[in-house]
Amino acid sequence: MLEARLEQANLLKKVVDAIKDLVQDCNFDCNDSGIALQAMDNSHVALVSMMLKSESFSPFRCDRNIALGINLTSLTKVLRCAANEDILTLKAEDAPDVVNLVFESAESDRLSEYDIKLMDIDQEHLGIPETEYAATISMPSAEFQKICRDLMALSESVSIECTKEGVKFACSGDIGSGSVTLRSHTNVEKPQLNVEIDLSEPVALTFSLKYLVNFCKASGLSEQVRLCLSNEVPLLVEYALSNNSYLRFYLAPKIGD
């Protein structure tokens, strides 16, 4: 059986909120290392990969592998019933029909309990190769969100060009063009504002802004976001969570003219 207790319901609320517009029905794959999710969007352009390690829960118990097929709209409805600071416990039997969610207030004696019916989801699981990326950029997640939103006002696509000079986000559309360039920057007092660029060779790729803006819904999960790029492979956008847990998005590039 599965029993996984989260100190704050807020973490799961934010994760589900960040991915629910991209993917609808997902298997939450539970095993002794934690709870994982991998799902593509309907058009097969983007891939979501979430890992909540067992260390992110206390306690965590999962005796055998269980796939919980959950509709994210249903999960969102139930998670709305939890206060952000509630303790959240997920429970399921070994061959479950439902997943049980218990919300407990740490400050009062309230205990809420909900069951969500599970679905049989036949999802293609993709193997994501280990990649040595040519460029890795760590930057404030709010800054990345603003750049994507700003450029989307002008164009559907953004080119991300990384050289030793810095990283340039550029777009052009019907009304004109725009760009934002960032250089490496260290703020000793506020390290969450750092921009770090690690480059082994120059990279230039073009991506759909609609998807990037969607990924940025995860900005509330982490002060920093990591962008990993290599020519002609999908972009990795990673929001690191505590205990080596993460929420990753992969986006296929636009190719050719």
Binding site: H44, V45, L126, G127, P129, T206, Y250, A252, K254, I255
Partner: peptide, 14 residues
């Protein structure tokens, strides 16, 4: 602007 590629062109099913 380029043509949007598909994520399954890069990551293999299995």
């Amino acid at each position: 602007e380029g043509t949007q590629s598909n994520i399954t062109n890069f990551f293999q099913g299995g």
